[in-house]
């Protein structure tokens, strides 16, 4: 489904990704782990098409289509979804309006009819329950005065509504207490499907107790330095990144 070959990307002439290779098949959940500054978030942003980053070489295809040729919104319509680490506020625009605009943009792309407000409201209410958000928050401004946990749940809710082919979750667990983590994880597990791939970027192993990945990759210095199964994450938890020759202050003690 997703194929990344020798991907190099830089920001302000500083190379961050130095040759990423990764293959993800439908139905698989891949965890990308690594210390701060290893390029995890950059990888998510580059896949989604953030124009602040420049791809200097390499290839990324989704179901055979060259993603790098597509604008941000075109990638999204092809099924790329990014759950943001720090979702931004859009004051005055209601969550409901924002989500309906997004859903209808996708539907239009697929040649389907737009959803009317009532129909959409019903669906949005159902999905909001899945991530334990009170439907009243649909009326609030996008991420406006949301708590950290609400923002993260809102991101997962959007993924559930938009039903992407590839969901990239950027540090979805950061800043969550254990209850919120459980709710978010339930949401992500509900997202798991045979025809969907999930790329989970995380610093910590604990998320993987809730969402069990098929593969774990360790990213360091802009490259994937080690890949393995679920057990690799457990090993990282126990031994830190040091044994892989990686220096990381936060997880090595």
């Amino acid at each position: 489904m997703l194929s990344i070959k020798n991907l190099h990307a830089s920001v302000e002439d500083k190379e961050i990704l130095k040759g990423i290779n990764l293959d993800v098949k439908p139905g698989e959940v891949h965890a990308i782990m690594g210390p701060n500054g290893s390029g995890k978030s950059t990888l998510s942003q580059v896949l989604a098409g953030n124009e602040a980053f420049e791809v200097t070489s390499g290839e990324v295809t989704l179901n055979g289509e060259n993603l790098l040729d597509l604008a941000i919104e075109e990638r999204a319509r092809e099924g790329v979804f990014l759950a943001f680490q720090y979702p931004v506020e859009i004051p005055g625009v209601s969550n409901l309006q924002f989500l309906r605009t997004a859903v209808n943009a996708m539907r239009k792309h697929r040649g389907e009819e737009e959803m009317n407000a009532a129909e959409f409201m019903k669906q949005a209410k159902e999905v909001s329950k899945q991530v334990d958000l009170d439907p009243s928050f649909l009326k609030r401004g996008v991420n406006e005065d949301f708590s950290g946990g609400e923002k993260k749940r809102n991101e997962i809710m959007q993924a559930l509504l938009l039903q992407p082919k590839l969901a990239i979750l950027d540090e979805t667990d950061s800043g969550l207490d254990i209850d919120a983590l459980q709710v978010v994880s339930n949401g992500v597990n509900a997202l798991r499907a045979e025809d969907r791939a999930i790329l989970m970027v995380t610093h910590y192993q604990r998320l993987l107790n809730h969402i069990v990945p098929d593969y774990v990759h360790v990213l360091a210095g802009g490259r994937i330095v080690k890949s393995g199964g679920r057990e690799l994450a457990l090993e990282l938890e126990e031994r830190g990144y040091g044994w892989l020759g990686i220096n990381d202050e936060e997880t090595s003690n």
Binding site: A48, G49, N50, E51, A71, I72, E73, A76, R77, F81, L82, F84, P87, V88, I90, P91, G92, V93, Q97, F98, T101, A102, A105, M106, H109, G141, V142, Q158, L162
Partner: peptide, 23 residues
Amino acid sequence: FLCRQRGIDPEQAVSMIVNGFCK
């Protein structure tokens, strides 16, 4: 970036953000 990542056209995104501002 958030709007476009959700499949919304840049023009429509600006208009939505401005409309929110004027609400």
